[in-house]
C-alpha cells in the first residue's frame, strides 16, 4: 500500500467519525430554527433546503423579538438553567474541597483508625464508584422527606458531591503522588505547619489537576438525571429533568425541544472546546501512567 493511499484512508476514516460525532449536535442546533414542515420533510442544510426561523428560541422567550417582553417559558427555563448551574458548581466545589484534602492526606500521611489504614480508607472511597444510583435512590427519597430536603437545591448538591467525590479523590491522589514530597518537606523544616505547606506549596503545584477534577465533576453533575428526576419536583428541578419531561408529552414541538436540548448541551460544548486539555487530564489520571 502506498504511503499516500494510506494517508488518504486515515483521513477518510477520521472524516467519517467526525460526521458521526458532530452530526447529532448540528442536527439539534439546527432543528431549533426549523418550522414543523421542515422537520417533517427531513431538511438538513440551512438556507439551502430551508429558511431558518426563530421558532425554537421564541418558544423559550429568547428570540430577538421576545427577549425584551414578559415570558413565562423563559422564566421557567432560566430557573432550570440557574438550578443546574448552582447544583453542578456546588456539588463539584464541595467534592473538590473535601476530596482534594482527603487525597492529599492519603498520599502523604499514614493513618490508622482501629483496623483501618490508608489502603482501606482509599478503597472505601473508591468502592463508592461501583454503587449504582438506584441503590441509594429510594433510601434518599425517604431520608430527604424526613430531613425536609426534598425538592431543595441543597439536598441535590449534597448528593452530587457524594457522587463525584470518589472521582475527585481518584484524580487528586494520582496528582499528589506525582508531586515529590521533598517539595513540602523543605517548608516543614522551615517551621511551616502541614496545612500551611499544603495550601501554600502543594496546592499551587497541583492546581492543573484540581481544575481537571473540578471540570470533570461539573460536567458529570450538569448531566445528572437520575437523582434530579426522583428528588426534585417544582422548585429545584434541573435542566435535564426539564428536557426529559418535555419528551413525554404528546405532539412534540420539535423546535422548542431542540432549543432546550441545545441549551443543555451548549455549555458542555464550550467547556469541551476550550478546556479539552483538562478533561483529558482528568479522565486519564490514575488510569494511564
Amino acid at each position: 500500500m502506498s504511503q499516500a493511499l494510506k494517508k488518504a484512508l486515515i483521513y477518510i476514516a477520521l472524516g467519517i467519525w467526525t460526521v458521526i460525532a458532530l452530526f447529532p449536535i448540528f442536527w439539534t442546533f439546527s432543528t431549533t430554527f426549523k418550522v414543523a414542515k421542515d422537520v417533517q420533510m427531513g431538511k438538513i442544510i440551512p438556507w439551502v433546503q430551508y429558511q431558518p426561523a426563530w421558532l425554537g428560541l421564541r418558544a423559550i422567550g429568547l428570540s430577538p423579538d421576545t427577549i425584551f417582553t414578559e415570558s413565562t417559558p423563559r422564566t421557567e427555563f432560566l430557573i432550570r438553567f440557574w438550578n443546574s448551574i448552582l447544583a453542578s458548581l456546588g456539588g463539584a466545589s464541595i467534592a473538590l474541597m473535601i476530596g482534594a484534602t482527603a487525597a492529599y492526606g492519603l498520599s502523604r500521611f499514614e493513618y490508622k483508625y482501629a483496623i483501618w489504614r490508608n489502603k482501606d480508607i482509599s478503597f472505601f472511597f473508591l468502592s463508592q464508584l461501583i454503587l449504582p444510583p438506584v441503590v441509594l435512590a429510594m433510601p434518599f427519597l425517604v431520608l430527604y422527606k424526613e430531613l425536609a430536603l426534598l425538592d431543595s437545591l441543597f439536598g441535590l448538591i449534597l448528593i452530587y458531591a457524594l457522587m463525584v467525590l470518589p472521582i475527585v479523590i481518584w484524580i487528586m491522589r494520582d496528582q499528589f503522588d506525582s508531586i515529590p514530597p521533598e517539595l513540602e518537606q523543605a517548608a516543614l523544616v522551615d517551621g511551616c505547619s502541614s496545612w500551611g505547606a499544603f495550601l501554600r506549596i502543594v496546592v499551587p503545584v497541583a492546581l492543573p489537576g484540581m481544575v481537571a477534577a473540578f471540570i470533570l465533576s461539573v460536567v458529570l453533575c450538569w448531566n445528572e438525571y437520575f437523582f434530579a428526576a426522583l428528588l426534585t419536583s417544582t422548585k429545584a428541578k434541573t435542566l435535564p429533568v426539564m428536557v426529559a419531561s418535555q419528551t413525554g408529552s404528546q405532539g412534540i414541538s420539535w423546535w422548542s425541544m431542540a432549543a432546550i436540548s441545545s441549551a443543555a448541551i451548549l455549555p458542555l460544548i464550550i467547556i469541551g472546546i476550550f478546556l479539552e486539555r483538562y478533561i483529558i487530564k482528568g479522565l486519564t489520571a490514575g488510569a494511564v501512567k
Partner: peptide, 19 residues
C-alpha cells in the same frame, strides 16, 4: 479531531436521548 471525537462524551444522556 480529538475535540470533535470527545464531544459526545460530554453531552447529557437525556439530551442525547432526545437528539
Amino acid at each position: 479531531f480529538r475535540v470533535a471525537f470527545l464531544l459526545p462524551f460530554m453531552l447529557s444522556p437525556v439530551a442525547v436521548s432526545w437528539m
